[in-house]
Design a protein around this nucleic acid. Structure first.
Lengths: 231, 231
DNA sequence: CTGGGCCAAAGTGTTGACACATTGCGGGCT
DNA sequence: AGCCCGCAATGTGTCAACACTTTGGCCCAG
């Protein structure tokens, strides 16, 4: 039953998959800076594989719009300009707002109650402990729970796929925007109440406003306006 | 200067690109039915190329979510079930609604006036001639004009890329839903007026309702509920 | 000194062969 | 007779070499 006894770093299935994940992670943590060039041959040598899997991984990144490329030119990691991030947030507001609206119609009372319990648990835990890192983690969980409850696989894929990935990259690069303390949590409660009241439009509006605030905060804090890559 | 003297069908650049477009077109017009299996070797022989480009084309289709595939299994053309299409329309309502909202803030008066002129021109032309085909073309133009005016490249790509593609496929397969005569045009006028009044929320609501009606009509007309492919 | 074109260097596109995973079928065991 | 195991058959994953395109630099003409 033991599938793979090797302790190699994440050798699950196709090499292209492994390389794809590796490149993705490298883009996340900045080892692959924005604007960096991806050389197929060099990467192939680095990973000790042929160019085929590398090529496929790069094409997948292109599909996720994380790298730009045209026919015979080299691929380069996309530049996450503030303008680009603003557009990303607009898409997120649209999709996650709709997800919220749908969730108000489709999530069960039990599911909603469970989310409420977890929010409560988080609040008490945050009051006693002072770990700021946990907060962010919990925030993401709240959003993801609602998105996954919307009953629309397409929306789930888009938001939990590339979208969150890219936003996370930007957030990390921009040096963890200053938290707005308990306010997000308060807004989460409002959203949850709207969901429990089955008021889809209200829930959508609240979610949009919630995301909009996060967006403004993120974009304004380092409104210097440079591309985050030109250093 | 004559790049390629061959009269072959659309040999522009990379083979993978050519094959990708060919497969896309074949999925459109139904030569590749939903649920059909894509065999890399067979396609390679058919196109007289190696498996590399074929493989790449299939992966791109996978990126567009037009084929489903997992690591070692064969790729198959996606099944456009009514449920799937419903979800697609929900995404479209979210994104195109947001696009409409943004367009209300960002499109110039001149652009909006031009769209109004074209709508007017279409109305008079439709009143005299009875070509129903022109109508649909014009409808799409209206939607696309607004989307492209929203100032958000991400939204434009998503909607005018795979989204419209898939919906067009479904519409074609389902046998051109019965037109609801002049009503769409009337709703277009309402949307345009909201845009000119710079009322983003209203424009968004109208656009959502407009798309929602089209969705219901499409899904109800052949509510038989089968997958469109199981014949 | 400047501009244009040739040429090598770098990198992507494509190929055919080989290795591995999955599947369906047939034979042997219970 | 029914079930499980193993084995070919099918098809995907990977590789290393070759062909084509682009790019940057060098040389030469003006």
């Amino acid at each position: 039953m033991d599938r793979t006894a090797t302790a190699a770093p994440a050798n699950d299935g196709p090499l292209a998959e492994t390389i794809f994940r590796s490149l993705l992670k490298q883009i996340y943590d900045g080892r692959l800076a924005a604007g960096a060039l991806l050389n197929e041959a060099a990467l192939a040598e680095e990973y000790q594989v042929s160019r085929g899997p590398v090529r496929e991984a790069i094409r997948r990144l292109q599909g996720f719009q994380l790298v730009t490329r045209e026919p015979y030119l080299r691929a380069r990691v996309v530049q996450l300009t503030p303008e680009f991030v603003r557009q990303l947030y607009e898409v997120r507001m649209a999709l996650e707002g709709m997800a919220c609206n749908l969730a108000a119609q489709r999530m069960s009372d039990a599911e909603l109650r469970k989310i409420g319990d977890e929010l409560e648990e988080y609040r008490t835990r945050a009051a006693s402990s002072k770990s700021g890192a946990r907060v962010k983690e919990k925030v993401f969980d709240f959003h993801e729970r609602i998105v996954r409850g919307c009953g629309n696989e397409r929306i789930v894929d888009m938001l939990c796929g590339d979208m969150y990935h890219m936003l996370r990259i930007y957030r990390k690069r921009s040096g963890a925007a200053p938290e707005r303390k308990g306010q997000p949590s308060q807004e989460h409660w409002q959203i949850l109440r709207a969901l429990q009241a089955r008021d889809g439009m209200l829930a959508e509006s609240l979610m949009r406003a919630h995301i909009g605030k996060a967006s403004e905060l993120l974009l304004n804090t380092h409104a210097g306006g440079d591309t985050l890559a030109s250093h």
